[in-house]
């Protein structure tokens, strides 16, 4: 559960002209304004429906654009006859963000590790970060965080003897780092194959030294890497999947499970297509047969995706 940036909260309070200690009721909770806007109410990048509702409540004409509550209050100030409570009533709570756990009970007892992309984007020339990613990046040692565990019953390691193919570019590597650590700690006998990709080898090879150690000690049997910005050709994991078609088909034949984690679009779509291509080419199947074959794999939990 992320918290809002204090300066952003401050601006809301200033533009709404409300003292920080005034208490409000929002949904089921009653809190002082400052705490409420820090921990409970989403004030960032408001969805269109809320901007439109604000226009209605305050009787102003506002173009259809998403913006932060503070900017809304600054550019289209609250009329004297509108109670702030009416605005509060249309706002929504901060939504929780999900992160894959990248640590393993057997290897990191008592700890939870996350692998978070501190993704930066530009809004009218200004650099911004995502709310939760930035909140996590700013955490100081000893600070407490509100969180809950959301269990994904399907995305689990198979029995220790089964081979595992892990396809996780970007932060998609998170659960696989946990998988590898767990299998390594428990001495699982199945083989492991990791596909990973990012922009640059030099700066973006997540868990590089751990992966090297896993390879060194024999816990990781094959690693296929794709760097999309290191050369003129943009290479992604799906290219590596096709290049390794023969071996991949051999692994699948011997019962390997395939896991895919990371961005849904376009990664998981492209990866799925490359898997189908491998099945067609090396399994001597038609496209329909390949699709059925993969569906069957999915039904038996040997092809599992956790994409977002």
């Amino acid at each position: 559960m992320p918290e809002n940036d204090l300066w952003e909260v401050e601006k809301v309070l200033i533009f709404a002209k409300i003292p920080r200690s005034r208490t409000f009721r929002f949904r089921e909770i009653t809190r002082e304004a400052e705490e409420l806007f820090t921990k409970s109410v989403n004030i960032m990048h408001l969805p269109l429906r809320i901007v439109q509702a604000y226009a209605r409540v305050t009787g102003q004409r506002i173009p259809d654009t998403r913006m932060n509550l503070a900017d809304l209050l600054r550019i289209y100030p609250l009329p004297a006859d509108t109670a702030f409570e009416d605005v509060l009533a249309i706002l929504e709570p901060i939504s929780p963000r999900l992160y894959s756990v990248s640590s393993a009970p057997a290897a990191h007892p008592g700890e939870i590790h996350l692998t978070v992309a501190h993704h930066r984007f530009q809004v009218s020339g200004e650099h911004k970060f995502g709310l939760c990613a930035h909140y996590l990046a700013q955490l100081r040692k000893g600070q407490r965080v509100n969180f809950y565990v959301h269990r994904n019953q399907r995305f689990r390691l198979p029995e220790a003897g089964r081979d595992v193919i892990m396809i996780g570019p970007g932060t998609g590597i998170a659960p696989f780092r946990a998988f590898l650590a767990e299998r390594n700690a428990l001495g699982a006998t199945g083989r492991n194959w990791l596909f990973f990709g990012e922009q640059h080898f030099v700066s973006d090879f997540l868990y590089q030294t751990e992966i090297q150690d896993f390879v060194q000690t024999g816990a990781l049997h094959k690693v296929s890497l794709a760097w999309s910005r290191d050369t003129d050709q943009r290479v992604y994991v799906q290219h590596r999947i096709r290049e390794n078609g023969v071996a991949l088909w051999e692994w699948l034949q011997s019962g390997a499970s395939v896991y895919v984690c990371g961005s849904k679009y376009p990664m998981s779509i492209d990866v799925e297509q490359s898997l189908l291509d491998v099945i067609v080419t090396h399994g001597a199947k038609t496209e329909t047969e390949a699709r059925e074959w993969l569906d069957e794999l999915e039904l038996t939990d040997r092809y599992v995706k956790d994409v977002y």
Binding site: V202, S203, F205, L206, Y207, Q208, T209, E210, Q212
Partner: peptide, 9 residues
Amino acid sequence: RAVKKLERL
């Protein structure tokens, strides 16, 4: 780089 689990540059 060691903190980032990246090998030496």
